[in-house]
Simulated assay, not measured.
Amino acid sequence: MKKTFASDNYSGVHPEVMEALLRANTAHAGSYGADEYTDRAIAKFKEYLGNDIEVFFAYNGTGANVLGLSALTRSFNSIICSDLAHINVDESTAPEKFLGSKLITIPTKDGKIYPHEIQNKIQRVDDQHHPQAKVISISQSTEYGTVYTIDEVKAISEVAKKNNLFLHMDGSRIANAAASLSKDFASFTRDAGVDVLSFGGTKNGMMFGEAIVFFNPEPAQYFKYIRKQGMQLHSKMRFISAQFEALLSNDLWKRNASHSNRMAKLLEAELKSASVQITRPVDANGIFAMLPPEVIPALQQEHYFYVWDEKTSEVRLMCSFDTTEDEVKSFGNALRRLLK
């Protein structure tokens, strides 16, 4: 398949990550995380996020989110999130099925949710007839490609603490957020009051693998059992761990994310040059724009992408670590040609 703007999940594996996988594919190593690769990968996470964290690896983002949330909730609880949150619109009914909790959604125009909106959803506390709010879940970067500032995360954390709630962050594109903010991971996670983080690797050059990071030790206490019960304990853990060790070494995560963010900015410029309306701020590696419906099928034949909203012809264009300037320019040229 030719390279596309459909998703950063479409990209392959970064060569440095593939080399790490090949190096791990020698001799025998302990299973279920009892290996030197896992020890080194966890040490890398601690370099970035602090020595007192707990880190657990999982196969995929849905597993990381659902299991991380399961450590924070009971079946009578509710989770407050954006109506666009991945846990609400792109993880089927996995959260509801495995958590038993209710998702309380907030409509959003920019992908973010704000303190006053969250506070309004914390209702009927201690009422046995009503689900009890226990978690606020935010995405960084958001499903609209926008990025929460450090102050915005801190403000949400203050609401969580005031109401005895946990703050969960879905960081499937956390590297893109960090590159956009020009800040280290800790500044907008642990230092901003996040309790549990899903740290994504697949969308930033890994073959597979995500991490669940606990900044709050209490919910991590029994997580090794939760991960096993949730079918996310990888027997050959070294093949996840080796990838994370590579991603967090030599600034590979930053190089990949900064490149995909920069390609998004170039693509935004190409769209603007064609007088196309950009509908959301381009903070990270995603662009949302309105295209005339009559040009979409022909353009998709040359550069595949997804239509985000069929009613309005809003499309989503995603850049990856391997997106090239030539591909961006080719998209712009094709768009201008079709719009004539």
Rank of each mutant, 00 (worst) to 15 (best):
A94I: 00
Q277I: 12
P95G: 08
L84I: 00
R23S: 13
F98T: 10
V147L: 10
C319D: 07
R280A: 02
S273G: 15
P292N: 07
L197Y: 01
Y304R: 05
I106M: 06
S180C: 02
R336E: 06
R238F: 09
I174K: 00
A34V: 02
F214V: 08
S258A: 15
D35A: 09
A27E: 15
N88D: 02
A94T: 13
L103Q: 06
E325K: 14
V276F: 06
R124Y: 15
R280I: 00
I104D: 14
P15E: 07
Q221Y: 11
A29Q: 14
S275C: 12
G193M: 04
G205I: 08
Y222M: 10
P293Q: 12
T323F: 01
F166Y: 15
I240P: 07
P281L: 04
S313C: 06
V125M: 08
M206L: 15
A284G: 05
D110Y: 06
D251A: 04
S182G: 11
E314Q: 14
I156A: 02
E210R: 03
A178Q: 09
P15H: 01
H28M: 13
N250C: 05
R173Y: 10
L252H: 04
Y306N: 14
G63Y: 04
H259K: 12
Y304K: 05
A298N: 13
W308K: 05
I104E: 14
F185W: 13
V194I: 11
S139M: 01
N261S: 03
P107F: 05
L291S: 08
A211P: 06
M18G: 01
V307G: 07
Q140V: 05
V196C: 07
T62N: 01
F215C: 04
C81A: 14
F199L: 04
V307N: 08
D309C: 01
A20D: 13
N25H: 13
L248E: 06
L197R: 02
V295G: 09
M169L: 14
K134S: 11
K236A: 11
S31P: 11
I138M: 08
I150N: 08
K183G: 00
I240A: 08
A177Y: 03
M18Q: 15
G205K: 02
K236G: 10
E325L: 12
G63L: 03
G201F: 00
S101K: 08
S11F: 03
E54S: 15
